[in-house]
Design a protein around this nucleic acid. Structure first.
Lengths: 239, 239
DNA sequence: CTATTGGTGCCAAAATTTGTCACCAAAAAT
DNA sequence: ATTTTTGGTGACAAATTTTGGCACCAATAG
């Protein structure tokens, strides 16, 4: 009898009997009192609420509401969580990143096949690198608060995005591009876009974008993006 | 690495790569060929449909329609995910942070009351601020790779932590403190600790800590931490 | 005070998991 | 036809995890 199976048996018994003592459970599942207590502990760690009362007439009781409602996340939500973990890792050590990955793995694994395909397609649009071109923090501007509300739907729904861009020399231009991917070179975020007017890819630092607007033009198709050397799609990173 | 985690990693890799050989999987998850084959066997027993083909160009392939199961996250895992989202927000705009928060909210809601209280208590140990004291990226050192494996259990289990600390002037001292909280002032991470020898709180920049060790001393109790002005517990932030 | 019941720490025994090695079978390349 | 690549099996010792047993604490009810 594996630990996992025994724990399932304990949950089932508790659901059936309502209240039960540790010793009764031990007899039921054919394990020692000590092992059952350890299992109770493990189940509580996993989120089951198990009330306990000492003394005569006491025992263990499983809160019927604690049956974990599976958190059903949308693909975009899982993607968003992945982004933040990926970005933090790229920025250097992230405390508890191992645990965060374990959690994400569980979530990913709970996604049905078709949603997983969607997620993978989105992950192909996320690139991370470690070498930041930025050496002086004072050069890091604030992101236009209007950017995210426009960028997010444009990126998710493959709609062209129009904005003003201020390049390194301070020149401002008006752009209308297809947001194809995101590149993270901490602490900078880049929008990797296909520029139809120029027939080529262009990178835009997100903190230099202003007055963004989702156009009502037709949706575009995703293209294969190419980078050099130390930049790789997040999906290909070993985890 | 426990069998369960390794099997999760194998499923993720197979989903990511489409087709993969046993040896590639073994290298990826850092286990022997034999172990991977055993894991494949176990996964098949659990209901995953994994096609295989011998000979050149052969390999393993996971049927994308394979089972899904509810994601049961532990409190520590949820905490870890929260940290990375919190850190990214603090570092400035995070694309899709709204979605990430929505996802986290769903996960949180799926946690039963008890575990939610635990999570809240952990969140009280997480502080974020926006003003970084750092203006020159060259001053940002690399975190000691040994830090996280020592810090994480010390923080989670309330065990004292011993380490060498190099202050701003370059002086090295040996410390033994109680890790009470984490403070994020991107891109810096601080360990907020109670120093029993000095009877006061002290902040330590994580990238200046070296040779960390969890002591086998008694566990400590969490204390109320106080900060000024623009630093607040993550739990108090509107979300 | 005593009996009952949950809960923890510790340690050695038991069970399981893992790595290594030899070897088989099928398919593709030569 | 032979070699190479790739999945798969069996066996056994080493490493790791799980388990049982024990002593003991805390709370509660009679």
């Amino acid at each position: 009898m594996t630990p996992r199976l025994r724990q399932d048996a304990i949950v089932r018994t508790l659901r059936r009997t309502g209240t039960s003592t540790v010793d009764a459970l031990a007899a039921e599942v054919g394990a020692s009192r000590r092992t059952v207590l350890r299992d109770i502990c493990a189940l509580r760690d996993e989120g089951f609420v198990i009330h306990s009362e000492t003394g005569r007439g006491g025992g263990l009781q499983l809160d019927p509401q604690s049956v974990q409602r599976a958190a059903r996340l949308s693909v975009a939500e899982v993607f968003a969580l992945l982004i933040s973990v990926a970005a933090m890792r790229a920025a250097g050590g992230l405390p508890f990143s191992g645990l965060a990955d374990a959690g994400l793995a569980k979530i990913e694994r709970s996604l049905p096949g078709d949603k997983l395909r969607d997620l993978r397609r989105m992950l192909d649009c996320l690139y991370v690198g470690t070498l930041s071109p930025l050496q002086d923090l004072s050069d890091l501007g604030a992101m236009d608060p209007a950017l995210l509300p426009a960028f997010e739907p444009a990126f998710l729904e493959c709609r062209p995005l129009r904005f003003r861009y201020r390049d390194a020399k301070g020149n401002e231009t008006l752009r209308e591009v297809e947001p194809q991917a995101m590149l993270i070179l901490p602490p900078l975020w880049y929008l990797v876009s296909w520029d139809p007017a120029r027939g080529d890819f262009r990178h835009f630092r997100m903190d230099r974008i202003s007055a963004p607007e989702v156009t009502d033009g037709p949706t575009f198709r995703r293209r294969r993006v190419r980078f050099e050397d130390d930049v790789c799609p997040y999906a290909d990173l070993p985890r």
